[in-house]
Amino acid sequence: MNKNIIIAGVGGQGILTIAAIIDLAAMKLGLHVKQAEVHGMSQRGGAVESHLRLSSEEIFSDLIPLGKADLILSIEPMEALRYLPFLAPDGVIVAATEPIENIGNYPDREKVLETIRQSAQHLLVEAEPLAREAGSARAGNVVMLGAASPYLGISAGQMEGAIARFFGRKGDEVVEMNINAFRLGRAQAIKKDETNQ
């Protein structure tokens, strides 16, 4: 087992929450974990990413080598493309389609999505309606975690267990809402998979 995952987004979108949930699941499975984060200035609305590495053997580098990421999981479409140099030739992009247009020169959304489609295997998910359906517009990150879950090398059950542990302090309602968000995201991945077959 060896997974290199880039989690990307804009400061404040909750990418560290996603990373923390995957960490919990991976640790329960006894995997080695390394997770490099961005703190400080960039968190003020800038581009942020986390390099998450899971492995059954010792992990040396905190950074994923270029061309070695199995998955780019991005909560924002343009941010998915920023880390393309890290993506392995057979790697997958799972990205939310809703742009965060906090810069003046944000490119045309359709062109961004089209570039993703041309760049790699991909799954594009409209996360916000699913987050609302789950019960909170802010659960978009967990929707995306669900959408990416088939590519993590960790079972859905293990992931849901980790979600329950992560949100447990906040009460059953929050846990249930996030599990719903995760399942709605995961269903998108499974639907796409069936379409392909």
């Binding site: 804009v10 400061g11 200035m41 960039s42 968190q43 003020r44 609305g45 800038g46 581009a47 270029l66 061309g67 343009m78 941010e79 493309l81 920023r82 393309l84 140099p85 890290f86 993506l87 906090n102 810069i103 020169n105 944000y106 490119p107 062109k111 961004v112 570039t115 760049s119």
Partner: peptide, 16 residues
């Protein structure tokens, strides 16, 4: 490695 597509623009930090 893949290049960063030209469509990607810089997203510097900013005041809230």
């Amino acid at each position: 490695p893949n290049a960063v597509p030209a469509i990607v623009k810089g997203r510097p930090p900013m005041l809230c």
